[in-house]
Structure formats: C-alpha cells, structure tokens
C-alpha cells in the first residue's frame, strides 16, 4: 500500500469512525477488521485507545499476570529486588480503618496526559497514537526523570547489562522501561500476555480492549458498570481502569 493510499484510508476511517460499525472503506476492507488487527504497514491510529479494565473483586492471590508478563517480555531479574525491573507487580491493600484486604496488579496506567512524557528531555518517553505509552530506547539517555515523575512507580531503570532478550522486546542497560501493553502482541491483534494469562486461569479479572469503541466489550462495561482511575485527583485520564476498588 502506498503512503498516499494509506493516508487516504486513514482519513476515510476517521470520517467513518462515528458511523456504523461495519463500514466498507474499500473493497474487502471494513472498519471492523481495521479495529481488530492492523496490517503490518499500517500505522497505529488515534481511532483506537487501548486500555485495561481490572476487576479487583475477581483478583486473587495468584501472580499469573506477573509471570506471564515476565515470560512474554523477558525481564528476568538477578534476584536483586531493589534494582531488578518490574513491569507489573501485585500490590496488596488493606484499608486502614476497616481492615478490608484486596490485591491487584499494578503497571503503567497508559495515561492520556502522562507525566513521564511531559518531563522527558529528549522525547524518548512518548505516547503512541493509540494511547500506548512507550520509551524509545534509541533516544533515552537514562536520566530517570520519568521515574521521578510517574505517580504509580510503574517504571524501572535497567541497572545491569542484559542478555537473552526476546526478539520483539529489546531492553538494555542504562535505559528506562515499563509495561508496553504488550505492544508487539497488540500490533498482531492479540491481547496483552497478562490479560491472556488471567483469563486462561479462569480468574477473568483483567480485560483488554479499545476504550474508544463504545460497542466493544470494554466500552460497554465501562458504560454500564462502576469503575475508577488511580490517582484520579491528578486528572491524567489513565487507560487502565479498576473496579471494586
């Protein structure tokens, strides 16, 4: 597909976004398919905003999401918890007054207004058109200002030389990294590894989807069920939402 054609289709898709879900853009190409899996030469589009909905009531003491993430993205550590990377972690909560205990997975919240992106001096920390917040490690100088700025402690600095990276997930010493929402899987039209694992194990506490798609599973649930954002006071509009918190 030529760039001109691609741009044309992009505009066409933008114009058609509000219209019916099944809109024919070109022979054999429909909006529904566009929303599911992009072709490899298609740029990520602002038509989508990928996000997660996490129901803490269904989240139990397991850490399937954490090990699945580690496996998918290859952030195996060196048994040094203070310096090892943690893209996702299980957090245990206990209400100070009532004593009510909960547990939930915490990772990059993929904010619409990410403080990490605001403070990054080189623009290495950026937000992709479809809402995924990433680090371009090619231009990250390792200043760690984004780690200072993140309200969720979601970012890690790679403290040691790395080997055995996954082919789709480069990571290296001296740069900052965090949850990518499994961007390599999303680009193939798959769900993030944590969501996959949570549902495979039958917990069903995590759901992935397009926040912009009111007709999709995630959009429908967000409209009909209560949910909340972490640090809502900061008005960052995160792409990760929690229920029963």
């Amino acid at each position: 597909m030529t760039p001109e054609r691609r741009r044309f289709l992009g505009w066409g898709a933008a114009a058609a976004a509000g219209a019916a879900a099944v809109t024919t853009l070109a022979p054999g190409l429909r909006l529904v398919e566009l929303a599911r899996a992009r072709s490899p030469d298609e740029a990520a589009s602002a038509l989508q905003r990928w996000g997660l909905l996490i129901d803490t009531a269904k989240c139990s003491d397991c850490d399937a999401c954490v090990s699945a993430c580690r496996e998918e993205n290859g952030w195996t550590g060196h048994d040094r918890p203070a310096t090892d990377a943690q893209w996702i972690r299980k957090v245990s909560l206990r209400d100070r007054r009532s004593g009510f205990a909960q547990t939930l997975p915490l990772m990059c919240q993929h904010c619409e207004h990410p403080p990490c992106v605001d403070v990054c001096p080189t623009g290495a920390s950026f937000r992709r058109a479809d809402g995924i917040v990433l680090v371009d490690k090619h231009i990250c100088i390792g200043c760690r200002y984004c780690v200072m700025a993140c309200p969720f402690g979601a970012r890690s600095f790679v403290h040691e030389p790395t080997t055995g990276q996954k082919p789709d997930v480069p990571r290296g010493k001296g740069t900052v990294e965090s949850c990518t929402l499994c961007v390599q899987r999303v680009d193939r039209g798959e769900r993030p590894a944590c969501v996959e694992a949570c549902n495979r194990d039958g917990h069903g506490a995590m759901a992935f989807g397009d926040l912009n798609n009111a007709a999709g599973d995630l959009g429908r649930r967000l409209r009909s069920e209560p949910s909340s954002a972490l640090r809502a006071d900061l008005k960052l509009n995160p792409g990760v939402r929690y229920q029963s918190l």
Partner: peptide
C-alpha cells in the same frame, strides 16, 4: 524502520533488524 516501528507501530519485515538477524 526503527522510528516507524517504535513510534507508529509499523512492523513490515523487509527492513526490520529482526529480519536481518
């Protein structure tokens, strides 16, 4: 290719480092 892949999610194989390797 690197900028297109990282920033736009364009993952054509032709000029990708992964494919070189």
């Amino acid at each position: 290719q690197r900028d297109e892949t990282v920033h736009e999610g364009i993952r054509t194989k032709r000029f990708s480092l992964k494919q070189c390797v």
